[in-house]
Structure formats: structure tokens, C-alpha cells
């Protein structure tokens, strides 16, 4: 009760202040002038292109001549395009394996680092380093070498009873090398988790300890719920970005072998810029947008059941 009134008091003070501030800070001209660079970019580089892109989906467009209206033909062709279904399968496999693995490692290591240990900075730096460089073509080159037929991995795996092979050239394992590369870059998600873990008040753990909670119980009843908004954020951003994954697949495997790593973004690129089927590719882009939007919506809806926001705590506690 006491806390509540303090909180409300704070709110009224704040409200009064913003009201005062408002008188001085309302200025349509100044406001629009300041945001004009972004606004121009939004209108001319996002909104207008989106409208155009939507129009292209109903056309046959090769850049060299004007777009020709063909109605729903692109979508009809896509519905029968086995490479489209293949790229969907590849991309979903990639997203559904790399994102959970990445978040799992990130959370595990963040928990390990969230205590008073010597050398935390060093661990954090080493673990973050792959995230810093992992998206570059340089690392793609490295990966291509390591997992190739003469890569050094083939000297290590026989020790575990796994036969040496060309990991990148084999349909069953090529996608796995790309997933590995993605998971290797869990460092930035880990840093976000670490920041989230530091925000959890220690008295919650103390209270749990008083109630006789063990380590696992504390993790399930305190850490996970308190960290859930951060997990949710990492999940959303991870899903959105891995649906668009391009460089690694393009450079390391170029979609092969036998299209086993032909990610959606890669297929779209080939349609648009290698064969100049820009109408078809625009249709692919809009399907991607719908898929990403649905995935994000599902995530948001599911979040009601597992993401815990502190300002709801009053009602529950």
C-alpha cells in the first residue's frame, strides 16, 4: 500500500511536469523539420517502394521493360514451384533449429557469467567475439574451409567415431554447418540476457531461499519469469532476422548441394537478380513478409502465457 501511494505520487508529479513542459514543447513546424530526414526516407524508401512492390507482385517485370499486368499468375506459379516449397522447408528448418539453440546457449552462458567470478570480462569478450565478426564474408570463407573435404574438422570427428566427409558438399549436413555458424554467434543474445539477469532484484532469490527453494526451483520460479520479457525480445528479433538469412548460405554453399541450403532469401535473390524475374521475386518477398508477420503474431499471442511483466505483479502477488 505504502509503495503504491509513493508510486502514484511520483506519477502525479511527473504528469504535472509534462503538462508544464507541453506548453513550451508543442511545435509542429520544429517537430516535422527535425524528423524530416527519417520521414522522407520512410515515404520514399519504404512506403512508396512497398506499394510498388505490391504492384509488381501482379506483374511480369524484368527491369528492362515496363511491368506487365498478369493478375495472380505469379502466385499461381509459386503455388506449383517445388523450389519455393524447398526453400520454405530449408528456411523453417534453419529458423527452428538455430534460434532455440542460440537462445539456449546464450541463456546458459549468461547464467554462468552472472555471478562474482574473476575474469568475467575476458570470458564475455571471447564469447562475444564470434557475434562481432560472424556475419562477415571473412568468417564465411573460414567456415567454407573448416567444413570442406580437407577442413581440419575431418581430423577431429574420427576421434568421436564419426567418419570424415565433405560437410558442405553433402546434402544431409550442409545446412547443419550454417546452423552451427549461426549458433556460434550467440554472444550478443548472451549480453542481452546478462543485462536482464542483472536487473532481477536479489531479494526475490533470498525470499525463494527462505521458502526452501533449491537451485532448479529458483531458476524456474524466479529467473525464468523475471527474464521472460528479455527472452521474448531475443526470440522475436532472432526469428525475424534468421528468416532473412542470406550471406552465409550464398557464400558458403550457394544454396547447394541439391538445393539443400537454398534459403528463402537466397532463392528470392536468384529470382530477382540472377534471372530478373522481379515480379515473381516481389511476390516471394510479400509471402515472406506475411510469414514473418504471422510468426511474430504467433509469438506475441503465445507470449501472454509465458511472458511475465512486472507491472502485472501487483494483481498477482
Amino acid at each position: 500500500m505504502y509503495q503504491d501511494s509513493v508510486l502514484e505520487g511520483g506519477k502525479t508529479v511527473k504528469r504535472a511536469r509534462t503538462a508544464k513542459l507541453k506548453n513550451h514543447s508543442v511545435s509542429n513546424v520544429a517537430g516535422y523539420l527535425f524528423i524530416s530526414p527519417w520521414l522522407a526516407g520512410f515515404l520514399f524508401l519504404t512506403l512508396w517502394p512497398m506499394a510498388q512492390s505490391l504492384y509488381y507482385t501482379f506483374t511480369d517485370f524484368s527491369l528492362l521493360s515496363a511491368p506487365k499486368w498478369i493478375g495472380l499468375q505469379n502466385f499461381q506459379e509459386i503455388a506449383q514451384d517445388r523450389f519455393f516449397y524447398n526453400s520454405l522447408k530449408v528456411t523453417f528448418t534453419y529458423v527452428l533449429t538455430s534460434v532455440p539453440a542460440k537462445l539456449g546457449f546464450a541463456l546458459l552462458v549468461a547464467m554462468l557469467l552472472n555471478q562474482k567470478l574473476k575474469g568475467i570480462e575476458l570470458y564475455r569478450t571471447i564469447i562475444y567475439l564470434p557475434s562481432l565478426i560472424g556475419g562477415s564474408i571473412a568468417v564465411a570463407v573460414l567456415w567454407k574451409n573448416i567444413f570442406g573435404i580437407s577442413g581440419f574438422i575431418n581430423h577431429i570427428v574420427p576421434l568421436f567415431g564419426i567418419p570424415a566427409k565433405n560437410w558442405i558438399g553433402t546434402p544431409g549436413t550442409a545446412l547443419g554447418t550454417l546452423v552451427t555458424l549461426s549458433v556460434w554467434q550467440f554472444g550478443s543474445a548472451m549480453i542481452i540476457f546478462l543485462a536482464g539477469l542483472k536487473q532481477i532484484p536479489s531479494d526475490l532469490y533470498e525470499a525463494a531461499a527462505v521458502d526452501g527453494a533449491g537451485k532448479f526451483r529458483k531458476f524456474v520460479s524466479v529467473t525464468l519469469p523475471m527474464l521472460s520479457p528479455v527472452i521474448f525480445f531475443n526470440l522475436i528479433m532472432g526469428v525475424i532476422s534468421s528468416f532473412q538469412s542470406f550471406t552465409a548460405a550464398f557464400v558458403i554453399t550457394n544454396g547447394g548441394p541439391l538445393n539443400s541450403t537454398e534459403m528463402y532469401a537466397l532463392y528470392l535473390y536468384e529470382k530477382a537478380f540472377a534471372t530478373l524475374h522481379m515480379g515473381y521475386a516481389s511476390a516471394l518477398a510479400w509471402i515472406l513478409l506475411v510469414i514473418v508477420a504471422i510468426a511474430t503474431m504467433i509469438n506475441f499471442m503465445a507470449s501472454k502465457y509465458w511472458v511475465f511483466y512486472e507491472n502485472e505483479a501487483g494483481g498477482r502477488g
Binding site: L63, Q244, F273, A281, A285, L289
Partner: peptide, 14 residues
């Protein structure tokens, strides 16, 4: 959150 692919092609055309 907008996938870059959606604006890629019209931007290129432009």
C-alpha cells in the same frame, strides 16, 4: 521489423 526483401526490388528498380 520489416524484412528488407520487401523494399529491395523496387528500391533497386528506382
Amino acid at each position: 521489423m520489416l524484412p528488407a526483401q520487401v523494399t529491395l526490388i523496387p528500391q533497386y528498380a528506382m
